[in-house]
C-alpha cells in the first residue's frame, strides 16, 4: 500500500536550539490486505509519521511511496484513503449529515451513494440518531464515531486511523474493533496507531513499532514474540515448600505462591529435585513474554 524510505523529520523548536528529531530514518513497507498496528509510547513519533504519510508535513529527508494500486496521482490516491485524526477536529456549526455530505462530495460521490454509504456506516457506528445535530453538541466519542463514518463514506482501500480507540467507552472500543475486523475481511488495509497493546493484539497480525523516532520492528506479530522467547521456564508452587528448592534458582514470593525461574539447561535437575522432595506443583511453563513486555524491553 505504501512504504517509508529512510524518513526523518526534524522540528525546529527554538532558533538557537538544536532541532528535535521526531523521526529518524524510518523505513518500512506496508503490504495490502492486513490490519497493521502502529505502536509506540507517547511521543514516539506515530502521529508525525502519519502526518508525513498524508502530506500535511514534509519529511526533512527520505520519502514516502504509494503503491500504484492506490492510484496514479495524488487525487486518485487520496480518494482511496480514509483518515481518522488523532483528536476529532470538526466544524462546529455543521451538522453530522452536512459534514458527511461535505466529505462525500469532495470524493466525487453521487448524492445517492453518499446517502447510502453514510446511512449504512452511521448506523453501524451508532451515530445515526445524532446526524441532524450540530457538531458543536457532539460528545468526544460521538465525534470519533462520526469521524470514522466520514473516513469510510468513500469506501477507501486504505484506512489510516490515528488512535481510533481512544476516547471510546468499552462498548465503542469493541464495536470499532469488530468493524475493523470486518473491513479487513473485505480486503481493506488498515493502518492504525495505538499504545494500548491488548487492543492491537486483538485485531492485528502485523505491527510497526517506533521508539523515540526509530523503527524497532516491522512485520508479523508472531515473529516478534517468537524471536523474543527466552529458553527459560517458570515453576509455580506453594510458598510453604519454597525452602526445598531455593538453591535451584531465583525465587520470587507472590503471596501464597512462589515462582522459580530457571534456564532450560537446569530442567532435569529441577524436575529431579521436585520429585525427590515430593513438591506439589501449581504450574510449570515456558516463559513467553507478552507483547507489552517485548515492546518495553525491545529497544533497551
Amino acid at each position: 500500500m505504501f512504504s517509508f524510505h529512510e524518513v526523518s523529520k526534524e522540528f525546529k523548536t527554538d532558533f538557537w536550539e538544536k532541532p528535535f528529531r521526531a523521526l529518524d530514518k524510518v523505513s518500512f513497507n506496508l503490504s495490502g490486505g492486513n490490519i497493521v498496528g502502529f505502536l509506540g509510547a507517547n511521543g514516539a513519533g506515530k502521529t508525525t509519521g502519519i502526518k508525513i504519510l498524508l502530506g500535511f508535513i514534509k519529511p526533512t529527508s527520505g520519502k514516502i511511496e504509494y503503491d500504484p494500486a492506490l492510484g496514479k496521482n495524488r487525487s486518485e490516491i487520496f480518494k482511496n484513503i480514509g483518515y481518522l485524526p488523532e483528536r476529532p477536529y470538526f466544524y462546529a456549526d455543521l451538522t453530522g449529515r452536512e459534514f458527511i455530505n461535505y466529505i462525500g462530495q469532495l470524493n466525487d460521490l453521487t448524492k445517492l451513494d453518499i446517502k447510502k454509504n453514510g446511512d449504512f456506516w452511521a448506523k453501524s457506528l451508532k451515530i445515526d440518531f445524532a446526524l441532524d445535530r450540530k457538531l458543536r453538541f457532539y460528545s468526544k466519542g460521538m465525534l470519533q464515531r462520526l469521524g470514522f463514518v466520514s473516513a469510510l463514506v468513500a469506501d477507501p482501500m486504505l484506512l489510516i486511523l490515528d488512535e481510533p480507540l481512544s476516547g471510546l467507552d468499552p462498548l465503542g472500543r469493541k464495536e470499532f474493533k469488530d468493524i475493523m475486523n470486518q473491513l479487513s475481511s473485505e480486503g481493506k488495509t488498515i493502518f492504525f496507531s495505538s499504545h494500548i497493546l491488548s487492543d492491537v493484539e486483538e485485531v492485528s497480525r502485523e505491527v510497526v513499532i517506533l521508539e523515540s523516532g526509530k523503527l524497532v520492528h516491522s512485520g508479523n506479530l508472531l515473529d516478534l514474540v517468537k524471536g523474543k522467547t527466552t529458553d527459560e521456564y517458570e515453576l509455580v508452587l506453594d510458598s510453604r515448600e519454597s525452602e526445598k528448592i531455593k538453591e535451584l534458582g531465583s525465587l520470587q514470593e507472590q503471596g501464597e505462591f512462589c515462582r522459580l525461574v530457571f534456564p532450560q539447561s537446569d530442567f532435569s535437575r529441577v524436575l529431579e529435585q521436585v520429585s525427590k522432595e515430593n513438591i506439589n506443583i501449581e504450574s510449570l511453563k515456558k516463559v513467553t513474554p507478552t507483547l507489552e513486555d517485548i515492546i518495553y524491553r525491545i529497544g533497551v
Binding site: 487520496f78 483518515y83 470538526f90
Partner: peptide, 14 residues
C-alpha cells in the same frame, strides 16, 4: 489551528 484542514486535505483536494 483547530486542524480541521486535515479532514479536508486527507481527501482528493489540493
Amino acid at each position: 489551528e483547530s486542524r480541521t484542514i486535515y479532514l479536508i486535505l486527507s481527501n482528493p483536494v489540493s
